[in-house]
Design a protein around this nucleic acid. Structure first.
Lengths: 112, 112
DNA sequence: TTCTTATGCATAAGGAAATTATGTATATTT
DNA sequence: AAATATACATAATTTCCTTATGCATAAGAA
């Protein structure tokens, strides 16, 4: 991820969330989708993404399907059954985290 | 920070934000305030907090004032002029980050 | 009265997760 | 022809956190 310094720790959950919605995606597609959704605010680096995908696969949360498109390699990832369950938990955790962060940055004069 | 795995990278900004509001705070007070604001969701560990405070001080963003209260040491930190400026920037960055995260976790069926 | 918890600071060792820097290769745009 | 986009991958490094430990006083519980 570029130009951010923040972010850390939630990449895995974001990957799971996107796969849960799209069904299957390949690495490069994920980087583009994140860039699009955040209007360029979040840029996932390959150095972060690919190891993360491999780790999630090793944990049994993702499964991979290789394809050739336009003479270029693509590795489509999708959630396993276990991955679907984990996505629910991790997403809830991330949402809690976001709520906490909002509480912390909220100006004090704001009405609760 | 305990029970979280997320969070990383925003501790400094949170410290700056709290000091900007409170004027001055000491370390232990910051941990309690964060716990309170997030209803226990975010627990800052001393191992993260004190080095962060020292680093912000070394960077010239904080200045310290030592006090003895009830025969116990307290180190009150407050923003320097430079610290106040930096707080504005870092807070804006953190708010952008939070907005980005919200975009990413937002369910697709939600109306934009 | 002793043990635990709370208050208050600090640092060292270790690990997780990112960034940065490379590397390979094809396709497309300038 | 060169640069950019597409598509994967990994090694070295850095950043930032957790865990563990240490010291010290005060207050509350057993």
């Amino acid at each position: 991820m570029k130009n951010s310094k923040l972010y850390k720790g939630s990449l895995n959950t974001i990957i799971l969330k996107l796969l849960d919605e799209k069904g299957k995606m390949y690495g490069y597609e994920i980087t583009q989708k994140v860039k699009e959704l955040t209007r360029g605010g979040v840029k996932i680096t390959e150095g972060a993404l690919y190891p993360a995908l491999h780790k999630l696969e090793a944990e049994g949360l993702l499964e991979v399907e290789v394809a050739m498109v336009d003479n270029r390699l693509r590795k489509y990832y999708k959630l396993t059954t276990q991955g679907e369950k984990e996505t629910i938990n991790r997403l809830a955790e991330l949402e809690d985290f976001i709520r906490s962060m909002q509480q912390l940055v909220k100006p004090k004069w704001e009405i609760n």
